[in-house]
Design a protein around this nucleic acid. Sequence first.
DNA 1: TGGAATTTAAAAAAACAACTTTAAATGAAT
DNA 2: ATTCATTTAAAGTTGTTTTTTTAAATTCCA
Lengths: 340, 340
Amino acid sequence: MKAKATLKQIALEFGVSISTVSKALSDSPEISEATKIKIQEYAALKNYKPNSIAKNLKNQRTNTIGVIIPNILNPFFAKVFSGIEKIALEKGYNVITGISNESFNKEQQVMDMLNNGTIDGFIVAIAEETQSLKEYKHFKDIINSGTPIVMFDRVADGINCDKVVVDDFDSAYDATTHLIKLGSKKIALLSTVNNLSVGKLRFEGYKKALTDAKMSIDEGLIVLETAIEDFDVKLQTLISSKKMDAVFALDEHSSTMTMRMALKQGIKIPQELNIIGFADGVWSRRLTPSLSTVSQHAPEIGAKAAELLIHKLNSKDEFYQPQTVVIKTELRKRESTRRL
Amino acid sequence: MKAKATLKQIALEFGVSISTVSKALSDSPEISEATKIKIQEYAALKNYKPNSIAKNLKNQRTNTIGVIIPNILNPFFAKVFSGIEKIALEKGYNVITGISNESFNKEQQVMDMLNNGTIDGFIVAIAEETQSLKEYKHFKDIINSGTPIVMFDRVADGINCDKVVVDDFDSAYDATTHLIKLGSKKIALLSTVNNLSVGKLRFEGYKKALTDAKMSIDEGLIVLETAIEDFDVKLQTLISSKKMDAVFALDEHSSTMTMRMALKQGIKIPQELNIIGFADGVWSRRLTPSLSTVSQHAPEIGAKAAELLIHKLNSKDEFYQPQTVVIKTELRKRESTRRL
DNA sequence: TGGAATTTAAAAAAACAACTTTAAATGAAT
DNA sequence: ATTCATTTAAAGTTGTTTTTTTAAATTCCA
């Protein structure tokens, strides 16, 4: 464990001043070639790297982004994260990760802990609990303290900051409309995420599509239930009743559980039941039959969020107007859908 | 965007020195009660938080862990990460994430970038390319520079550092043995990860289990192919031949692809074909039939790695002997296996 | 009660590492 | 000897913590 090379250590080595070393390493014209060369060579040899903590302190910025994610095990967030990380690396930023675990307290705690100079700005998907409570004061405080926030996917209406969202309403509308065009007369709607902004928007899109197609909204075909156990019971009942010829599932659990229960009942997919769901693309392809999904372009969401934040950090514009960017979704038609 | 409260700012406010404020806030007995109270009250009012960058510079430590992961989209790594994050939060550490994308260069670059005071230590799963090249100099350099490393899952034999691994050999041995006990006579071995240390160990465990059971190792039942396209072609051929009654798949792709191709061919699982694979537990349960897997306790791996690193960071023991911790796996028997 | 000793409170300074700016010094040339 | 050009030294900046000094207040004893 040899001592790390610092300007001071190098200066001592050559009996010159710290500023001489600093200038030599930044290749300043003020320093003689001979001195520069010997110092630069020594620095390279010792693998000198400026201590970024010291630099950060001086510059009053850290080139670090804080990313607050409700649940890293959700592949959607993992993908968004990969998009953030990619852009961050390109722009020379580090990424500090905080997991809120869908908890309001932990979200607040983690963000507060990081908002002390550790990070320059936040990228956040709001925790479920926070969104249920509509408790957004901590976001306002952080923004007021001068730390910018970019929200993605789950956003807070009242907060004036950059946002990156998916067109949840439209994508649900389009998916439902697609099922109608395939000949479905009875489209069930399944959701365990109706407590989230995204879930509500998707539900609205579904209803609008039915209304526009002059189809009635059948409450008996709708299962909105946040508690997984209760949801599964209701879903089992619905599937056994065989009242529907298509399912639109708003989240991964309801999508996959529908497939599993239907296959167990011997219901043929897609011959007897069309299914479109929100789910991870890789795993949807691995199912048999493969699941048609609404692809949300998660990496692009992350990339865009990172770009917005870094742009804001680099601009000195006091009167910057926050914007909301909508990332288009795509309907990925796989084996779980076909003309009835 | 009001100015952040600093010691200096508070000192100026009361016309006292910076050190007085510092001591007052740390409730030092050197400061009179009256002074302490007024300063503490003011600090609370102004929501003063010590600038962690400055503290880090002074303390020569950042309470931040650098986690280098080959691919965050792999649920295994995401789960390990969640385990790391949990312990880190408990112990008051932040987590900076770097993704190597399985690339040697990026791994080196990211770690180098962070090893300048930004982080106190690393937790690393080695990139595939790094492991193929057996190029471990950067790890040695970092350790020599005084920054401890804990490796998990994919580890480098030649490097003297803490390691957290799964008993890949044993778990493969046990899984294979389980298939034998279920009555399998012809157990195929599929792997797209034979370029990784973990893949090789699992392969060895499979062979040992067969040998111990006095069964021959049939090269015609073994598909080792890193390129996904080539793998799929070979797998299709193997499955069409129907030469086996069981499959042991060493990674997620080969596990799921086997199920998919077999089901497409009308092969009944598990009646005609038993399958055990390495795969994500959540999604394995969602498959129909659900997939029996080797559960690797990923969060525990991450937690243990974080504990080892933080312990090392907090101990001043110059002669600390690095250890290798083995996390036990568990065979999760689901619908894809049963007595033949 | 006056002067010294001791306690107490607070201020000053140093350190962390990098970086910047200003001032000074050296050397050569005029 | 003076001027100019080139180097180098010194000092200040960031915010915190820790150590050292200084100043004031109190106690103690003669």
